[in-house]
Amino acid sequence: MSKKSFRQAINEAMRLEMRRDPRVIIMGEDVAGGQGGTSGVVDAWGGVLGVTKGLYTEFGPERVLDTPITEASYIGAAAGAAATGLRPVAELMFVDFVGSCLDQIMNQTAKFRYMFGGKARTPLVIRAMFGAGFNAAAQHSQALYPLFTHIPGLKVVIPSSPYEAKGLLIEAIRDDDPVIFLEHKVMYDDEEEVPDEAYTIPFGEANLTREGDDVTIVAFGRMVKLANEAADKLERQGISCTVIDPRTTSPLDRDTILDCVADTGRLVIVDESSPRCNMAADISALVAEEAFDALKAPIRRVIPPHTPVPFASVLEALYLPDAAKIEAAVKAVMNHKVTEAA
């Protein structure tokens, strides 16, 4: 047990699983970096943000494969390798690049098992970083998890802390289905205590980071931290919140969300993804359908506007959910007055 960053936790998950299972391989753009350069240095980058650093040195070129910048072919190759005996972890760098390889994910990987009558196993993990907050603008900042969640056959994981990231990534690598593993790029230097050993966190079980009586907040990834910040502040003002980190959007732990809404009667959903057809909309529909009678106030969604992610800091800050917006939403549902029908 020691303090590890989000980046280290993810690196350690891959390292431990590569040691444990020779079928686990890593591939992606510059996951080592430097091959073909004039300095002769390999493992120059270890991924564009250094997440795979050192894996090439330990496992060599047969298991840590740099790819050309051709997402369709190497994501497809990862799927083909997964279907034929390897357990690849492919890095898509920025999830925004899925536009270049969506067919291989959506039409190939996700559908093998179903359309082949249950005969395929595709133990593939696609890691990608997502999210806004780095002035990376419209093509490098999206939170595209609803896109993957929409596709049957994929599992979608959004870790909210270093501990969560390590356990969920090891679970993903050992899972026999294709898993999209999305890392918020602003979180790589976040630190917390993380066991040195391998451990797994099951998919489809939400984590309650706190329990309260008044309002249920559902948040994803980095938003979990912001929701807890808001809840800390609200606690001092006498409003107690439950904060749910679903951990995975597919499968989604519907029961925990519904149980908590039944307890608190109020729901705020914090979702960094574009607002139309996002997780906030999905969960709102779930609660409206299954827990309508428990609601004491309308559901509130803390979501960005229906725009691309802007570049300038002032606009990006406006765009993103933050603790203050969450706090305001919680107060709004607390202050809702039920008007009795005449």
């Binding site: 391989i25 072919s73 994501i75 190759a77 083909g80 997964a82 034929t84 390897l86 067919d103």
Partner: peptide, 16 residues
């Protein structure tokens, strides 16, 4: 759809 998948199958054959 198939050529990328066969790069992967070939990678399996080569690696295994």
């Amino acid at each position: 759809g198939g050529p990328p998948l066969m790069c992967g199958a070939a990678l399996s054959h080569k690696t295994l």
